[in-house]
């Protein structure tokens, strides 16, 4: 099967592998502690683990775009902020 039209590159493949790993981790986590640990965090939203992952990923996308718009490439600063944001979301939201 010729997949050259999909134009795969290592960085984009790594991105999707990361998403896949995140989803797999969530499944394993759910296996060991079922129910998704629902709670009401600082935003007063009812969130489960899956919601928190979604908020982290969506927020990270915006953080990276904002970094790119304000400071331009490279994106390491955006990545660091996103990781901190993710930790904060999983801890408090």
């Amino acid at each position: 099967m010729d997949l050259s039209w999909m134009a795969w590159t290592w960085p984009t493949a790594a991105f999707f592998i990361f998403i896949l790993l995140a989803l797999t981790t969530m499944m394993i986590w759910e296996r060991f502690s079922p129910g998704g640990n629902p709670r009401k965090g600082i935003l007063r939203l009812d969130t489960t683990r899956g919601d928190r992952l979604f908020i982290t990923l969506l927020g990270s996308a915006y953080i990276h775009l904002a970094w790119l718009g304000i400071f331009g490439a490279p994106l390491w600063g955006g990545l660091v902020i996103s990781i901190l944001f993710g930790i904060a979301v999983f801890r408090w939201v």
Partner: peptide
């Protein structure tokens, strides 16, 4: 698959 392709194209 189309969405992944769009991500790939956006960097090239």
């Amino acid at each position: 698959i189309p969405l992944m392709t769009v991500v790939n194209y956006s960097f090239q």
